[in-house]
Lab assay of single mutants.
Amino acid sequence: MFKRLMMVALLVIAPLSAATAADQTNPYKLMDEAAQKTFDRLKNEQPQIRANPDYLRTIVDQELLPYVQVKYAGALVLGQYYKSATPAQREAYFAAFREYLKQAYGQALAMYHGQTYQIAPEQPLGDKTIVPIRVTIIDPNGRPPVRLDFQWRKNSQTGNWQAYDMIAEGVSMITTKQNEWGTLLRTKGIDGLTAQLKSISQQKITLEEKK
C-alpha cells in the first residue's frame, strides 16, 4: 500500500525546468507551479508516452532531478554507511541512485490517469530550513484521497528550496528505503546496493492501464 502511495505522490513532485522555475526561495510556489507544469506535460505528451513509456525517463531527467536534492536524499538512505564509504564508492552510488530515480519516478508518472491535487495554504517560513507541505491527491475514479507531506529543505548556501522526502501515513519514503535496503547494505555494503540500483534502473517502464 505504501509503495502505491509513494508512486501516486511522485506525480506531483516533478519540479519546473530552470527556464520557467518559480521563486526558488518559496517552496509553496515551487510546489504549486511544479504540480501544474507536471500535470500539463503528462496530459499533453501522452502520444509520446504511450508510444514509448521510457520517454518518461527524459521527462524526469529534464523536469524533476535538477530540483530534487538527489545527493542529500541518497546520503540519508545510506545512513551510517555513508561515512564509511570511499569517495569513489559515493560517486558510483550517487550515479546509480540518480539512474534509479529516473526509472522509479518514471514508473510513478506512468500512473497518471487524470488525477488532480490540492496544496495546503502557504504558511510563514520564518527562519525554518525544513518545511512540510501537505498535498491532497484526488483520484477521478473514486479512490479515497491521498494526503501527503512533502519535505522541502532550504539550501544554506543559495537560499533555494528543494524537495527531498515524502511522508505518507506517518511513514517517510527515506525511512522506507532504509528499511528495504538495510539488509543488503549490511551483507554486501554500498557496492552491493550500487549494483542492485544499476540493475533496477535497467527495467523498462510500463504503463498502468486505467481501472
Rank of each mutant, 00 (worst) to 15 (best):
V68Q: 15
T183W: 11
G159M: 13
I205C: 06
F2H: 02
E91H: 09
R143K: 03
T86K: 08
F97K: 05
Q157E: 07
G79A: 06
T129Q: 08
P121L: 09
T136I: 13
N26M: 09
V68W: 01
G106H: 03
L78G: 01
A88G: 13
Y28S: 07
I130W: 04
D40L: 09
L5N: 02
H113I: 13
Q151L: 05
K128C: 08
T136S: 14
Q69L: 02
A22I: 12
L101V: 12
A85L: 07
I119F: 08
Q103H: 11
I167Y: 08
F150A: 00
I119N: 12
R134V: 00
I119C: 08
S17A: 13
D149I: 00
A104N: 02
E63G: 04
V131T: 08
K211D: 08
Y72D: 01
P121F: 11
L207V: 13
Q123L: 11
K3L: 05
R90L: 05
R90T: 06
R98N: 13
N179R: 10
Q36Y: 15
K188R: 10
Q203V: 12
Q202F: 15
L207Q: 15
A108F: 12
Q162R: 11
E91K: 08
W152L: 03
V8P: 01
Y28N: 12
Q62D: 10
S84I: 10
K198H: 10
Q89G: 09
V70A: 14
A14W: 14
A88K: 10
M1E: 01
K83A: 07
F97A: 05
R4E: 11
G189H: 00
T129C: 05
A34G: 05
K188I: 11
R153H: 00
L185Q: 08
N141V: 07
D139T: 14
K37C: 06
L109V: 04
Q151K: 05
K83W: 01
A35I: 15
R153C: 01
I137S: 00
M6S: 01
E209V: 10
G79C: 05
N44M: 13
I13H: 03
V70N: 15
G170D: 03
I13C: 12
A120M: 15
K43C: 07
N179Y: 05
A19D: 01
K198P: 15
K102L: 13
A9H: 02
V77A: 08
Y81Q: 15
N155P: 01
Q118E: 13
E180M: 02
T136F: 06
I200M: 10
N179P: 03
I59L: 07
Y82H: 05
L109P: 05
A110C: 12
E208S: 07
D23H: 11
D61Q: 14
E208F: 13
L193D: 01
Y112A: 02
N179M: 11
D40G: 15
Q123T: 12
Y105T: 00
M166I: 01
Q196Y: 10
A104H: 01
Q196S: 10
Y117D: 04
I190A: 00
L207H: 15
P145R: 08
F2G: 02
M6E: 00
Q24E: 13
Q107N: 10
Q46W: 03
I59W: 01
R147H: 01
T158C: 03
P124H: 08
L193N: 13
N141W: 08
I174Y: 13
Q89V: 06
G79K: 03
A110K: 15
R90Q: 06
P27Q: 06
G114A: 00
G114K: 08
Y164P: 03
Q115K: 01
A110F: 05
A14G: 09
D191G: 07
I59N: 06
Q196D: 03
E33M: 06
F94S: 08
A95Y: 08
A21L: 08
L42R: 04
E122M: 14
R41S: 07
A195C: 12
K3I: 07
R143P: 04
L11D: 01
R57A: 13
I200C: 07
Y100Q: 15
K71M: 03
K43R: 12
A110E: 14
V12H: 04
R4M: 15
K102I: 14
I167E: 04
